[in-house]
Amino acid sequence: MDRITIKSIDRSEAFRYMAAEGYSPEGIIAELADECERELIRVISPKYTYRVFGISDNDGSRVRLSGCPLILEGKDISALLSGCHSAVLMCATVGAAADGLIRRYQAEDMTKAVITDSFASTAAEQVCAAFDDMLREKYPDKFITWRFSPGYGDLPISIQKDFLNILNAMRLTGICLNSAGMLTPVKSVTAVCGISDISLPKKQRGCAVCRMRENCTYRKRGTRCEF
């Protein structure tokens, strides 16, 4: 398990999560945002862990990994990992204290709760970005795909439990599932990415290939995520 430090929250990203893209807060909201950021950064303990497995078979609809009993099912994950020799399974979290802070703010001031909730989501994404940087540094001569999470496209979300078991995630990061299959702490991420010796075409991204496109909140609002 690796520990990383987050020094500030990417505000523009965070306000986008609040459906307030392009909004630059002033007055009370700016003050609250400063307070929420300070408090969140004080309490969180970001962590991630990962395992690298060789890809033993990728037939276009499922990917098998060597030394790992989990099979990654789906055309989307197969397409993502095509041309890759290894797959990285990772999980990351900002920790349970973020949930606690959001809970406290919900009893204290809903504005702070809303701001902190999206700041914490942003922080989780920043932990993932730090993981990406670490991986690129570790494999300077390789090409690394973007991250793809269980539940995206046709990669079933039902693999979460096995996925976390393989990473020993509970012990190393404190991440586990609740009875409904939600990740807890809430601001946690699981994802797969591929490692390749050759440069990869970037064609697989965007709304056109996203299977969430029919019920995506961003699209409903006329914006988009970073997929």
């Binding site: 606690g100 609740n178 409904a180 807890t184 702490p185």
Partner: peptide, 13 residues
């Protein structure tokens, strides 16, 4: 060992 699911309030057990 731990149950493998977080207790309330962070979890739902």
């Amino acid at each position: 060992g731990p149950i493998g699911q977080l207790l309330e309030p962070t979890g739902s057990l």
